[in-house]
Design a protein around this nucleic acid. Structure first.
Lengths: 323, 323
DNA sequence: TGCGATAGTGAGTAATTGCCCATGCAAATA
DNA sequence: TATTTGCATGGGCAATTACTCACTATCGCA
């Protein structure tokens, strides 16, 4: 029903509406018209013009990009690179008190991914999961990259059996038309035995091998505080979370939990995590994408103990990591 | 001196100012703050915040990108308008390999005509002939415009004496209920003398006068290649076509043939063309409607030599005209 | 030291934009 | 066929933004 309405809309309604939105957005942002002018040029009321412009924005048709190395951010990035011997660091400005936890770093990550995919030589790129990466991919411009491969680093099956929403591999395949290699596994298996069984499947083994060859990977970092994404998304229970915290876990990447010294927690959920291991930091770039005070404890061990060798974060987080 | 000022600026002044501009631009466009919020976050007055944002724009620190096929069309249109000093340009997306030579531009022309006719003030609109215009009028929504006048720019008598099929004046009168002024003449008279005789008729003189007062006109463009519409429709013979080509003719509007420099071919068929001259580009809009590789040679002189001051075409043709 | 030019500032004001609401239209539903 | 639901529209108004003007500080230069 919804689909039918959707289809009908696509056939005529929304199609031309999005067209108009793009027109309006172009006239507004590129040509610098006022909404009044747009209204008369498009033959609609001023209010409609305003709606079209804001539609173009909300549909992500218009993308603003800021090309200026802000000195302070550059400085922080250089010091992070130096201090933690990271290969690649990107620091974006902070907007204090803004609600969106991915603000800025999503845009920066989108640029980063686009840069990777704009290579002519085939690239294998590992992709984790999570809200931040999802937001980043949503911000990418459509591309046509059938020569590149994107491989999922984590399972994409939610606890209820559906494809997990924040799994990003499908989004990126759709946006950039890369070859895509999902990981048809739960993030955390029911038991260690089940995980072993799953990992024996030929297709999974192939995907895992591909991960090992990835030259660049992007991973989110999850905190293990009271609203840990791992719990929010139902991958671990409240009890398991408490147990993890008790064992010293402070953060998680791809489901793998680690403590303040960057050591993976032995036993508990890590025995059942079905994700690929973190890709090699020797042979490729592994870039963590995270910001925010609540993730600080999780980010710190990741960079201090070389769980990753790249970082995209914001000013405030960068300063906290250094201070 | 410039270098010195530059150096001084880099040392303190503008350097940090551009930094601030970038920050302000970021907060404004990426984080979506109001300038008030930016002002307080940066600790400057609201006016200064506004200046920083506008500086970021004028310094091209912020770049907008529009991910929609329409954006490219708008871009091409703006460049055509600029390059050829045209008043009105519409560029529609190209569907590569689609057979219909009027695809897209017919729809766009229909919209254009409807817009003209939706005026409450009486308008006199000139209309040429041709498949493209015919297709455009067929796509119009029925209207009721007895206060507007449509006047044919070209004869509507086919060589066999019937009303020429691609004459559009009747279609538009029927569709929009405008007053209509056909041109009961052959497109090309049998001789220069016959043409002179025909043009002496009172009714024809009136119609011609009306043409001269048209504030907007739509004309098709015909190529003079092997399947020139002028030949296909039997207005010129194969021999005449060869002669025209020999004289350098590359295109035709309303039957008037012209060469690559936009000069009307002297002698030959132009001595007998019974159509009205092209309406004045000084006093009104004359919009050519054409697309396609085979018409490129005919379109180019029309726009470069101001035979028309408006153009409706498609992406591929627009790009070819510019490139 | 003083002069002129340049750039930045704040205030006030005009222009533009964003948002809410009542209305109307059309598709879906009973 | 009548009703409901969802969505686009246009008007009006408040918020936001852009612009102008007069003033000040700074800098280069004589």
């Amino acid at each position: 029903m919804v689909a039918k309405a959707e289809a009908a809309r696509r056939r005529e309604g929304t199609r031309s509406r999005l067209d108009d939105a793009a027109r309006a957005g172009w006239l507004y942002y590129v040509a610098g018209n006022t909404q009044d002018e747009i209204a008369s040029k498009l033959g609609v009321s001023r209010q409609s013009a305003q709606r079209l412009v804001s539609l173009a924005v909300s549909e992500k048709l218009v993308k603003v990009r800021l090309d200026h190395p802000i000195a302070h951010c550059m400085d922080l990035a250089a010091r992070l690179r130096e201090t933690f011997a990271l290969e690649r660091v990107e620091v974006v400005p902070t907007d204090p008190g803004h609600p969106d936890p991915a603000l800025g770093i999503a845009e920066a990550t989108a640029v980063e991914i686009e840069t990777v995919l704009s290579a002519t030589e085939p690239v294998t790129m590992g992709i984790g999961t999570g809200r931040t990466l999802k937001a980043a991919v949503d911000l990418m411009s459509p591309m046509d990259c059938p020569h590149h491969s994107a491989v999922s680093l984590a399972g994409n099956i939610a606890p209820d059996g559906s494809a997990a929403f924040y799994n990003v591999i499908f989004s990126i395949a759709d946006k950039a038309k890369t070859r895509s290699f999902p990981m048809p596994l739960p993030v955390i298996a029911a038991s260690a035995g089940e995980r072993a069984l799953l990992h024996e499947q030929a297709s999974i083994r192939k995907t895992m091998a591909l991960v090992a060859s990835a030259s660049i990977s992007f991973v989110g970092i999850g905190d293990l505080g009271p609203s840990a994404p791992l719990k929010e998304d139902g991958f671990v229970t409240a009890e398991e979370l408490v147990a993890l915290q008790g064992a010293g876990a402070v953060g998680e990447m791809l489901g793998w939990t680690y403590d303040a010294r960057g050591r993976f927690i032995e036993g508990l959920t890590n025995d059942r995590v079905a994700s690929s291991p973190l890709p090699s930091r020797e042979h490729g770039l592994v870039i963590a994408v995270a910001r925010g005070a609540n993730k600080l404890a999780a980010i710190r061990p990741a960079v201090t103990h070389r769980l990753v060798n790249g970082l995209i974060t914001d000013e405030a987080t960068a300063a906290a990591l250094l201070g």
